[in-house]
């Protein structure tokens, strides 16, 4: 898969979670890329979690921009 297509695919997964109210909770990076934990409170005020494994460098920039914006708007 071309790098740009991979970026678009990963970005759409992130956008989908953000649209559903998830925020980035934690990021862990290792040799395999970035593991980004998304969280949102549910009706029972418990935290619902989803994790995305991000491979693409442009997507890693993308979620970093989101994270910085999220921290600024906190």
């Amino acid at each position: 898969m071309a790098s740009y297509e991979e970026f678009l695919e990963e970005k759409s997964k992130i956008d989908e979670l953000v649209e559903k109210g998830y925020r980035i909770g934690k990021v862990e990076e290792n040799l395999s890329g970035a593991f980004v934990d998304f969280e949102r409170p549910n009706e029972k005020k418990q935290s619902e979690k989803k994790q995305l494994h991000i491979l693409n460098p442009d997507t890693r920039k993308y979620f970093s921009n989101l994270l910085i914006a999220q921290q600024k708007n906190k």
Partner: peptide, 21 residues
């Protein structure tokens, strides 16, 4: 391509997530 973001900015933001956790 949006607002500037340096590697140092990014790493500080990621570090903050583990601190918060």
């Amino acid at each position: 391509n949006g607002e500037p973001m340096t590697w140092n900015d990014r790493q500080a933001a990621i570090k903050q997530t583990s601190t918060s956790a």
